[in-house]
Every structure is written in structure tokens, then in C-alpha cells.
Design a protein around this nucleic acid. Structure first.
Lengths: 216, 216
DNA sequence: GCGACTATCTACAAAGTTGTCAACAGCGAA
DNA sequence: TTCGCTGTTGACAACTTTGTAGATAGTCGC
């Protein structure tokens, strides 16, 4: 009789099994793993926690990704692609004008801050996943910016390409560093609301950069 | 007979036990844990690995620190103190002159690069150990630098304190970000030897900062 | 409805990690 | 030398985590 009663080896509390398409399951699992990646880094991704977030058992995760390592690789790849697209979009959406440096910095800062893209960059660099970062993109941005710079300021000596590259590098590193420990530093400095201070800092940085590009 | 032969429950390969003072043992364990902290972050510290590095068994580590968490707290505290002292020393050793900005940046960059102080800063900020970072130190540096700045450039309008603070913040964030993903970015940009490019970048940054402080 | 496919589950295994415990052993003091 | 203190150890326990295996059960096509 007992054999007839139990429909599975052990009757679960909620016997209703939700079945998704493989693609939907993979996507949901990647979403959960992405949150864990942002919060705890690649080393902090646990199969059981990710599975619990999605509402499935951890063998289901293994079924869809094969191994924990493959899951980490998949979520890193997806997130790096998203980061890459977001940065390019932020740059592309900045109209070529005068006071748009501040808007561009604000956009890039938002990309690094929201969704934790800055944190993920740091996690990957620290964890040795640096080779997963997009390659040869920085140089293309530099070349495009330098062309626009030479076009905009006709008279005077031609600025060196490296000057443009270093300017962009400085802006990006400052925004990146700010996304990681900016709040801590402003709090430590007692400057008040970190969000407000961050905004003022970026506006100030925009003025410095424009100043340098114009006169440097 | 067998009872007489075995001097311990199981005869170890090397029966020689090295006994250190508690202080020496703690120091050696902290050294090993520090390496692990720099390489893998606070979450990557394993009692067995640290013990193996020192050449002891892992219960010895627990004996000296009580728990893994206490060990992590101890090594973080020691390393943050060392980082703090190194940064203050780098600033203090910079003579108040003209072209010393480059030397100062080089010093701070060395502190962040060597011994992995920059990495540790990032690890702690990402891992939520941000509250372990030194407090109220940034503001004291800003105040001192601002006083020196007002003294050096007598004529003209008095620069705002926030301008000095943002300048220091920019320099530190750029150096910090460069210590984390500078090599990756320069490699991605195909600019050649990251060490050389980093040095050129810091020299360039020094010129930009001095320029801003003088004219801004 | 029925069968094939497969997403999903429970149960288990294997390895790693932290922590406990009793015993051993080096070293200084009486 | 002997004794007490304690740094050190092997063995073990409890827990976590990844991975495997077989069974269960939705879903689609016929």
C-alpha cells in the first residue's frame, strides 16, 4: 500500500513541478547567478544558492550548464558583453558638443554604478578573469575620440594621440575607482551625502578634462 | 611492546616538532594569511592552506586565533594599518616643491602596486569590509594639502577647499584604478609594456594636476 | 489519448572546510 | 632532574559544496 501511495520516492511538500523551456531556465539561472556575481564575485557563486534563488534544485542548474565552472563562465561572458554594450552606448549617445563632457561622465558613471558593472570589473580583474574582458576596444575608442578632437580644434599644434588616450584613461579610471570606493572615501572625508558629492565630483572632473583638452 | 614503540598515537614522518613563541607563530601565520588575502581576498583565506604555508597543522592556527573569522579580522587590521602608514609616509616624504607631484604620484602608486595594497583595498571594498578602512584620514590629508596650497600661491582668488579635495580624490582614484585594471587596459589598448606606459601615465597625470592647481 | 523527449526532482557520494578534543612535546622555572 | 605551562598534533565530527544516478513528471507531436 505504501508503495502505491507515494508517487515519488519521497512525497515532496508541493508536488507541482514547474517546467520551463531550456532557454527560459538558463536565462533565469543566469539572472540569479549574475546577482551573486555582483555581490560576491565569481568565487562566491554557489550552485545551491543560485538554485534556491531561481526556485529549483541544484542538479537542475548542473543539468543546464554542466558544471559550476561552466556556469561561472557563462554568466561572466554575458555580463561582460552587457557591460561592453552599455559603455559603447553611453559613448555613442553623447552628442558631440561643448558641455557634453559632464553628461558623458554621468552616463559612464551610471553604467559602472548601476547593475554593479564597476564591481564586476573589479571582481574579474582581482580574480584573474582579466582575460575575459573585452579586448582592443579601448584603442578604438581612443582613435575615434582623437579624430574628433583634431577636427574640433583646427588651429594650434596637433595634440599627441597618447594625450587623448591618457585623458580617456584618466576619466575611466577615476569613474571606476569612484564606483568601488568613492562612497567610502567621501564618507571617510565627511563631505556629506555620497551621491551628491559624487555628482559634484564628476561635474568638476568634466571641467578639468575639458580644460585640459582645450588648452593642453 | 607496540605501546612502548609508538611515542604518539600515530608515528609521524618527521617526529621533530618545532616550537615557536606565541608571538612568532602569530606573526608567521599572519604573513601567510596576508599573502592569501592579497591573492584571493578575505573569502579566499583557508585555514589548511595558511597552515600549510607556515608549516603547521591547521588546529595550530585555530589555537592562536580562535576562529577563521578572527584570523581574517586580524590580518585585515594589520594590513590596513600598514597601508595607512605607507600612504602617510609616501605623502610625508614628498618635499614641498615644484616638480614633486610626479614623485608623489610615483610613491603612492608604488604603495598601491607593491605588496598589493591596491588589491587589498579593492578586496575589502568589494567584500563589505569597507568599515575596516581607516576613517577620517582623507579629510586630514585634504586639510593639510589645502593649507599648503593657499600658502604657496599668494595672489589671486582663494581656491575652494572642495577643489583641493577633488584634486586629491582624482589622483588617488586614478592611481587606485590603475593598480587594479591599468595593466589590463593598457594591454587591451596595445600601448606596449604596461610598466612603461604606467610610468608615462603618472608623469602625464602629474602635469595635468599641477596645471590645474596652478591655473584652476 | 499516448509515447518520446527532457526538465526536474530526491537521494546519495566524494571532497573540502571549520572546529573540537585529547594527547604529545618543547622549554623554562623550581 | 622534575614539573607545569602551552605550542603543537592527529583523529574525528559536523557542515558545505560539487557532482552523479535513477526516477518522476510536464509538454509537445502524433
Amino acid at each position: 500500500m505504501a508503495k502505491l501511495l507515494r508517487r515519488s520516492r519521497v512525497t515532496p511538500g508541493g508536488p507541482q513541478r514547474k517546467r520551463r523551456t531550456a532557454e527560459a531556465a538558463r536565462s533565469a539561472i543566469l539572472d540569479a547567478a549574475e546577482q551573486r556575481l555582483i555581490a560576491s564575485g565569481p568565487a562566491g557563486i554557489r550552485l545551491q544558492e543560485v538554485a534556491a534563488d531561481v526556485g529549483v534544485s541544484h542538479p537542475t542548474v548542473l543539468h543546464h550548464f554542466g558544471s559550476r565552472e561552466a556556469l561561472v563562465a557563462a554568466v561572466v561572458e554575458r555580463l561582460v558583453a552587457a557591460l561592453h554594450a552599455d559603455v559603447l552606448e553611453a559613448i555613442a549617445l553623447a552628442p558631440a558638443g561643448e558641455g557634453n563632457m559632464a553628461a558623458l561622465l554621468e552616463r559612464v558613471a551610471a553604467v559602472l554604478g548601476e547593475r554593479g558593472h564597476g564591481r564586476v570589473l573589479a571582481w574579474l580583474a582581482l580574480s584573474g578573469h582579466g582575460s575575459d574582458l573585452p579586448e582592443q576596444r579601448f584603442s578604438s575608442v581612443v582613435v575615434a575620440a582623437h579624430a574628433r578632437r583634431k577636427q574640433q580644434r583646427a588651429p594650434g599644434p596637433v595634440p599627441a594621440l597618447e594625450d587623448t588616450a591618457f585623458t580617456i584613461l584618466l576619466a575611466f579610471l577615476a569613474l571606476f575607482g569612484d564606483s568601488i570606493l568613492g562612497p567610502e572615501l567621501t564618507r571617510s572625508a565627511g563631505l556629506g551625502d555620497p551621491a551628491r558629492v559624487g555628482k559634484r565630483f564628476r561635474a568638476w572632473l568634466a571641467r578639468v578634462l575639458v580644460d585640459h583638452l582645450a588648452r593642453g
